[in-house]
Simulated scan of single mutants.
Amino acid sequence: MTAAPSTRAPREERPSDSWIVALLFALAFGYDTVEGVANLQQLPLLYLGSDIQGATPWWLLIAGVALPGLLFLAALWIGRRMRLVPKAGILLVALGVSAQLSLLAEQFARQIAITALGG
């Protein structure tokens, strides 16, 4: 009595699976972009209220809006020929980098404000 080997055919990935994963990550990157736009609108007002409007880090605010989209596109381009799980991993790494850069930019803007206030 021999046991039949369990040979399951690998599940084929549909193109729609990749689109769904990309759409879900697009929403997360979109949230990062919305945060960047909010910072672009609110931070200059905060600097103006503190009378340090000359120290507004415009390059940092513009980068905060542009980087999430650029990272998303770069992750899609890198993972364009990969299977679904590695592609999702690349997108997840890019989302983590985007979140970390957002936090770093916030800390840098805070340091600029402290320096401009003479502290």
Rank of each mutant, 00 (worst) to 15 (best):
G89P: 06
L23V: 13
L71R: 01
Q107C: 00
G30S: 07
D17M: 09
A38L: 15
L46W: 00
L92H: 07
G79E: 03
V93Y: 03
L73H: 07
V21E: 04
L71K: 03
G64R: 02
A55V: 06
P44K: 06
L46P: 01
L76D: 01
A55Y: 08
E13N: 09
L23E: 07
A75I: 01
R8A: 14
Q111H: 13
R11H: 10
P44A: 10
T7Y: 10
P68A: 00
I90L: 06
L61M: 07
L76N: 05
A28C: 12
I78L: 15
W77R: 12
F72V: 04
L84N: 08
G79F: 01
R14Q: 14
W59K: 10
E12A: 15
I90Y: 01
A74Q: 00
T56E: 10
A113I: 01
S18V: 09
T33M: 13
V65D: 02
R83G: 07
P57H: 02
A88N: 00
R8W: 07
L46Y: 04
A109G: 04
R8S: 13
F108M: 14
W58H: 07
W59I: 13
L76A: 06
R83Q: 12
G79I: 03
L104F: 13
A3I: 14
D51A: 11
G49I: 08
V34E: 07
L73I: 10
G89E: 09
A113V: 05
S18L: 15
L71T: 03
L84K: 11
Y47T: 05
L43Q: 12
R83T: 08
S98E: 01
S50F: 08
Q107P: 00
L61W: 04
G89V: 05
A88E: 00
S18T: 12
A113Q: 07
